[in-house]
Design a protein around this nucleic acid. Structure first.
Lengths: 248, 248
DNA sequence: CGGGCGCTTGAACAGGGTCAACATCCGTGG
DNA sequence: CCACGGATGTTGACCCTGTTCAAGCGCCCG
């Protein structure tokens, strides 16, 4: 899930939850109340499952640092990656409905998470209007984001998908402040392919093509975007990720 | 969005909101309080827009009768149908995040809606724990549903998509009680194609093939499922829609 | 009656999947 | 330190699924 890129936010004590604690909505005392129920977990090493399918739903998790991937598994055993998650984003909301997690989430790199007990959060939700409203907004945005994803999966070709994907990560990497031209892809080509609905060979080929055209450079898993405007064009005009301040 | 198919529910006065008023969670007085803020609109004729992109977000809508389609439009003008909605389901939640609707929703057939003013609902959310929790569940389920959709769009071929689509409608048509073998497709082939990420010719061909194989029959827009088990197989074992009581 | 929309069907094409071979990276252990 | 093996990534050739283009039909409604 991606949180608002344009929202003002403050650091919630040691736990940066972008979009979660809007200064306009929460008083300092309310922030303290929220802060008091948040559990700060120790560093999770790469490959650690935050939750697995079938686990009892008890917490939602805000990412302080690191990188997560979430995925679900169909009855026939096919894996589908449903999202990659960066610091400031929240995972685990899919468990609210049934009280059990219906998918997995795991760390792609060593990551720090904040665990927020859902029962205590729900209790605060009845008392702190701004918190409840913000949570509804976050879930609403997740729905909107999924609709954009659907548009991408249904209507874009392979080149457009890759371009859109790279730009999306680039923007989210920068925590909503413009666009980072250098970032790391901690997921495998297989993961990217699965997420975008492509074959891994196709992902490899298209990234290769972009390198040949000098639109991006790749060193191991480090990506540099050399020509943002070309990448944006490739992504289609429907790209929300272009920083209007960027002119290269 | 689809609501829980397995949840017990009661009629919320004149307004049937499946999953919305769980008897276990809401007292009769709470149901009355909810009922008092709900506006029952007159019959909307076919093709009426419930809301449009850019409209101020003021209400969410529960469908009492009829059929809706929701869609959004990319910057480049491409339309993407994000869902079809049947009685008992809720639309408009995508507007919570920004305070404006980011897509359209319109009636495919004459439909009755309940409009629920969001500010009043939010007010009740602070007072009625069960209502708030249920709303979070509904939004959580929407997220889960989108993940399943993603799996379908990414990993299923055209035949599987159509089979899954037909079964899904068949189950939802029956309001969660098993599976209706006869129902109406009020949307055009073009709509189905757009939703599933296929060309309309492909949709037409595959439906034709299913008819030829006598898996389904189609009379105008009336669909009859003749061989549920075959359709389920086609949909993939990942199909959640099979009624265990059906053995034909 | 006619025009437009929705739908079907056919034929040719192409984007991307599949299969296969090979290259590279990385951790492990000798 | 280097050799090995497995996982990951690249590249090529072929082929299939589903798209595109095109033509024609049926139905609804003015």
């Amino acid at each position: 899930m991606s949180l608002p890129h344009n929202s003002n936010f403050i650091k919630c004590s040691t736990c940066s939850l972008k979009g979660f604690c809007l200064p306009m909505m929460l008083s300092h005392s309310d922030i303290d109340r929220l802060d008091n129920i948040i559990q700060r977990n120790k560093l999770l090493e790469k490959g650690t499952k935050v939750y697995s399918i079938g686990d009892k739903f008890t917490h939602i998790y805000a990412i302080r640092s690191g990188y997560l991937k979430s995925y679900s598994i169909s009855d026939s055993g096919e894996e589908q990656i449903t999202g990659f998650h960066l610091p400031g984003e929240i995972v685990g909301l899919e468990g609210i409905n049934t009280g059990s997690h219906v998918g997995f989430s795991e760390t792609l790199v060593p990551s720090h998470l904040c665990a927020i007990p859902y029962d205590k959060l729900d209790n605060l939700n009845s008392k702190i209007d701004g918190l409840r409203q913000q949570l509804f907004k976050i879930m609403s945005q997740e729905i909107t984001h999924n609709h954009e994803l659907m548009l991408m999966l249904n209507q874009k070709n392979a080149d457009e998908k890759i371009a859109t994907f790279l730009l999306s990560l680039s923007v989210r990497e920068s925590l909503g402040k413009g666009l980072t031209t250098q970032f790391v892809l901690p997921m495998t080509r297989t993961d990217i392919a699965n997420y975008l609905g492509l074959a891994l060979e196709t992902v490899s080929r298209i990234i290769g093509k972009l390198i040949k055209q000098d639109v991006i450079s790749v060193d191991h898993r480090q990506v540099t975007i050399n020509k943002v405007n070309i990448l944006s064009e490739l992504a289609g005009t429907s790209c929300h990720f272009v920083d209007p301040n960027q002119h290269n």
